[in-house]
């Protein structure tokens, strides 16, 4: 088992023929991911990376049976791409694009709310189920198969955590990069819940950062769930000054309850194994699972 994506996922790439889309689709195919085609309006009927190109997502669903999409469309058009995927019946929409205007995301978020789909991102590294499907921009070789789930707002910090876990002789069920924007489709709590409910996942690594309430919400849910599956947590940005955006649009301390310190306190109170050093994530996982 795993969550969100596996070897049977039928994946299309929106923004397939652009430079980002081409590069990463190539990497995904090389990894063994089941990419069934891509979408670039106006280029339908062509072949790209030996896969069919469709004009619309609906066509890709109809002709290639696509159920999962990864979006590399530029920021100005990305919200539209998300809504097109949802309208066409795509079940898992993974949006890599960084820099989508907030106003566009408010619309897209509202649009998909009552549709049967799950949005991951935007501004995220994607999702990987090792040895089955890499639907993202992460370096595949870092992620070995195993029983630890990862949820993170950040790209390279996810790779760092996965690397540390693997070096402890453990592996990953699914790693979910939820993204660092103020509005994201899947919250920390939702991603953690999926992994806690996954029978193969024995522990969850939850990596957050300053800004917003997502980690606190996840921690409170975990406590109430009564789950015995351990969560290992880290929050980046203890040294970040208030009121400054630290790279990710959502990473900004607004008040006293969205600092790293405040988040870690709530997480500890809810029974999460919190590490203060980002160098100790893997060690802690091994310790908790031993």
């Amino acid at each position: 088992m795993s969550v969100l994506v596996n070897k049977n996922s039928k994946i299309i790439v929106q923004g397939f023929t652009g430079s980002e889309g081409t590069f990463h689709a190539g990497q995904m195919i090389e990894y063994g991911t089941n990419v069934v085609g891509g979408v670039t309006p106006g280029k339908g009927g062509q072949m790209h990376l030996d896969k069919p190109v469709f004009n619309t997502v609906a066509e890709a669903v109809e002709k290639a049976g696509a159920d999962t999409s990864i979006i590399f469309v530029p920021p100005a058009f990305a919200a539209d791409a998300i809504m097109e995927a949802a309208d066409a019946g795509i079940k898992v929409i993974i949006t890599i694009t960084e820099g989508i205007p907030v106003a566009d995301m408010i619309k897209a978020f509202d649009y998909i709310k009552n549709r049967d789909c799950r949005l991951i991102g935007p501004n995220c590294p994607g999702v990987i189920t090792p040895e089955e499907a890499k639907v993202g921009i992460m370096p595949g070789f870092v992620f070995k198969k195993g029983n630890v789930g990862i949820v993170s707002k950040s790209g390279t910090l996810t790779y760092e955590a996965a690397d540390q876990v693997v070096k402890q002789g453990l592996g990953i069920t699914t790693a979910i990069g939820i993204g660092g924007d103020p509005i994201i489709g899947t919250t920390t709590k939702e991603a953690v819940e999926m992994l806690i409910n996954d029978p193969e996942t024995e522990a969850v690594v939850m990596i957050g950062e300053i800004g917003g309430q997502l980690e606190a919400d996840a921690a409170n849910w975990y406590k109430q769930s009564g789950s015995k599956k351990p969560i290992i947590g880290f929050i980046a940005g203890e040294t970040a000054p208030a009121g400054r955006t630290m790279g990710h649009a959502g990473a900004i301390v607004g008040g006293s309850d969205d600092t790293a310190q405040a988040k870690k306190k709530i997480m500890r109170e809810c029974g999460i194994h919190v590490v203060d050093s980002p160098a100790e994530i893997g060690k802690k996982v091994a310790e908790v699972l031993s």
Partner: peptide, 25 residues
Amino acid sequence: VDLDGNVGCMVNGAGLAMATMDLIK
């Protein structure tokens, strides 16, 4: 982002950059 400390850092990725700052501290 300019800060007041004594150790400069250069990192790829925002999350890892924040984590590196924490590690410096």
